[in-house]
Design a protein around this nucleic acid. Structure first.
Lengths: 210, 210
DNA sequence: TGTCAAGTGACAGTAACTCTCAAAAGAGAG
DNA sequence: CTCTCTTTTGAGAGTTACTGTCACTTGACA
């Protein structure tokens, strides 16, 4: 059982303020596309929304949309928390049981997401539940999260890179995280998400004795 | 630790022999498309192989290919084992711990697959490792396996349909199964797959203590 | 202010699907 | 065996996500 109180870690490791006009414009375009997409999807649904419409609404060309996001699904997803999670995991005491370390990481990450991007998280989860393509892409993107976390755990446990047990460990935790999100979304995103995650991890810690 | 010896269950619950010419032709077309696809992929790779080529090689029209398989990825995948697994799970003693029941089911299923479709399993796993789209579709198809197994477990444990712990349980096991397959494939499909699965389930049973 | 690099838009092309409709072919009755 | 009914097939037209190229524009920096 974790869920300790801590400085509510920033969602992004901020780049230093002095950012050229170019960079700033890029960020703006990026979020313009995102906003336009979320708006159109809310009105018409995911499939009915075409890249062309998104481009028009965001006042850029379709080419530009593809330059910013490799696939349509990626527009509604984020990997932003991956590096933060890796960092937090690294910051945990080395003798803490790995499952508890991950519990802390996930608790922090979800709380942070829910406080800073509450509505977006809900809408994204809804899409994950409703749209197979989005769900699939989300799962794939979890694979890269998995790789990242595996690397950190390998380094912390002194095991072989590509150690089977570590990979199984991470796969179980992330698989369970995915299912928890789906469950939460299917039930109207009303339950306490961090609490659900803790229950799921408790199940894992107890060896899945049903 | 399971892996008991048992009658090597048939891969498919055979439909009664008296099958009309129509049905037989459909099966033939289906496997013609499959074979053609595997052949072309072996020669040229997955992405380079188009539906049009597959159709030509299988001597059907592109329309027909789409009628038999909803997506290109589905051509190289199978859900055939799902109903068998559900049946085997149902046949286990009710007082057996669920994790052990699933261990038995997975052990049987993989052994059966490896003996009856050895080469195809290997090629499919290779595709799963190499081609993100195939991997994604495979993961999605595991979702429906999950639903099936969840239903059976719910009925065996007398829990609520859609019980959170049962869903977590199945998600963990299937997530771990997926990772085991990937690991196996990445390492040349040379290890003993059932043995790896047992190791993975041992990890789960031990509460993922690394 | 002028030069260079980075970002953008227009355009053409590919391939996976979807839909519709008419032709072909198996099933079953007489 | 043949006529009818139903299922399956192929042909064709259309949509959309995505790729690659190239000329143009617009920040960066001296």
């Amino acid at each position: 059982m974790a869920a300790t109180s801590h400085p509510p870690l920033a969602p992004l490791p901020e780049h230093q303020p002095p950012m050229g006009l170019r960079e700033r414009k890029k960020l703006k375009t990026r979020s313009a596309i995102r906003r336009a997409t979320y708006g159109l999807i809310a009105e018409q649904g995911y499939e009915a929304t075409t890249i062309e419409q998104i481009a028009e609404a965001a006042e850029v060309s379709p080419s530009t949309v593809f330059r910013y996001f490799p696939t349509k699904e990626d527009i509604v997803l984020t990997d932003d928390y991956d590096p933060v999670m890796a960092a937090v995991l690294r910051s945990r005491p080395v003798d803490e049981p790995p499952l508890e370390s991950l519990r802390f990481v996930l608790d922090q990450a979800t709380r942070s997401m829910m406080t800073t991007d509450h509505d977006e998280v809900i809408q994204r989860t809804r899409l994950m539940v409703d749209v197979p393509a989005v769900r699939a892409r989300m799962t794939e993107s979890m694979s890269s999260t998995a790789t990242l976390l595996t690397d950190v755990l390998v380094e912390r446990t002194g095991r072989d890179a590509d150690d089977f047990e570590v990979r199984i460990f991470v796969a179980a935790v992330l698989g369970v995280l995915r299912e928890t999100s789906l469950y939460w979304g299917e039930h109207g995103s009303q339950d306490d998400l961090p609490a659900l995650i803790h229950r799921a991890l408790d199940s894992l810690a107890a060896g899945l004795r049903l």
